[in-house]
């Protein structure tokens, strides 16, 4: 019993008052967690692909790793967790909507049999992702909606047994923290970055967060760090000769892949055929394939 108000009567506190209706809310939240864990139990390995900054090739990395793993015979799912800027379905050649099955929503079929779920399979084509709600307070409720939507896109989808689920996260260090809150520690996190001076602080912050969260397998993917002339074959660094290694040393991370710049990466993924499948002999494709193999074996 709480102490009497000044000049008033005592009022029982929240925990002193039994109300099954109020407690059912906590039970519903617990049930959401149970359904999420049940779905994750059939997934052997969750691989999160994140970046501190946008425009560094994160989704192209997700698409190529997922496609390479699937092409090697593994059962692979790819979830586009970039809810506001979805692109993974297009990159993996998945079209149409998502059908409802007995066990939940059926993922779309992408190249090499990758099971794909993305917001751009749910929203009308060419319409921006917009959440219904009051104007002017979006920052207060949108993160709640987005977290709930991500939860549903994992727990309400009939993924079946997966060897690997690739999660393509939106850019931003805090998105990694939100994912860990929701699903726990991913088995592998790939931090995609360009090996530039500007990326140094962002990568270090992400590495620090993942270290605090106890994520053990974190690989740095240095993307677009070099360029090979198609005429003379000479390779030139784009960000300084030792940019990737320096970045890794500063963030206390290991470089898992250095992906050379190749205009076909974006062209092929835009066409729905990741370069690991469309032009597997090119240096960028070989680097993605080696990265996928390392992800599978780590």
């Amino acid at each position: 019993m709480n102490g009497p108000r000044e000049g008033g009567r005592p009022i029982r506190t929240y925990h002193e008052v039994a109300d099954p209706r109020a407690e059912s809310v906590a039970e519903q939240v617990a049930d959401q967690g149970r359904r999420l864990r049940a779905r994750l139990a059939s997934i052997d390995r969750v691989v999160a692909v994140g970046s501190g900054k946008g425009g560094v090739g994160k989704s192209a990395t997700s698409a190529n790793v997922a496609a390479a793993l699937a092409a090697s015979g593994r059962s692979v799912g790819a979830l586009d967790a970039d809810l506001d800027g979805p692109s993974l379905a297009r990159m993996l050649g998945a079209r149409g909507g998502l059908a409802r099955g007995v066990d939940g929503i059926e993922p779309a079929a992408g190249v090499a049999g990758v099971k794909v779920v993305s917001m751009d399979l749910l929203a009308r084509e060419d319409s921006p992702v917009r959440w219904r709600g009051p104007q002017g307070h979006g920052s207060l409720w949108q993160s709640v909606i987005e977290t709930g939507a991500l939860r549903e896109l994992i727990s309400d989808v009939a993924w079946g047994h997966l060897d690997v689920l690739v999660l393509d996260l939106p850019p931003g260090t805090e998105k990694l923290a939100r994912l860990i809150d929701l699903v726990g520690r991913p088995d592998v996190v790939l931090l995609v970055t360009t090996p530039s001076e500007a990326a140094r602080g962002v990568v270090a912050r992400s590495a620090s967060l993942l270290g605090e969260a106890g994520v053990e397998r974190v690989g740095l993917v240095a993307n677009m760090g070099s360029w090979t002339c198609p005429h003379c074959g000479v390779t030139e660094p784009l960000f300084g000769a030792d940019g990737a290694r320096q970045l890794a040393r500063d963030a206390d991370l290991e470089v898992w892949a250095e992906i050379p710049f190749d205009a076909r990466v974006s062209a092929d993924t835009d066409d729905g055929l990741p370069i690991v499948l469309g032009a597997p002999d090119r240096p960028a494709a070989r680097a993605f394939a080696a990265l996928a193999e390392r992800v599978a074996r780590s």
């Binding site: 909507g97 998502l98 749910l122 929203a123 917009r130 219904r132 549903e152």
Partner: peptide, 15 residues
């Protein structure tokens, strides 16, 4: 939640 919250949700995408 997605169905009730997403503007332009493509209900036709699901039977």
């Amino acid at each position: 939640l997605v169905r009730s919250s997403l503007e332009g949700f493509e209900s036709g995408s699901q039977p």
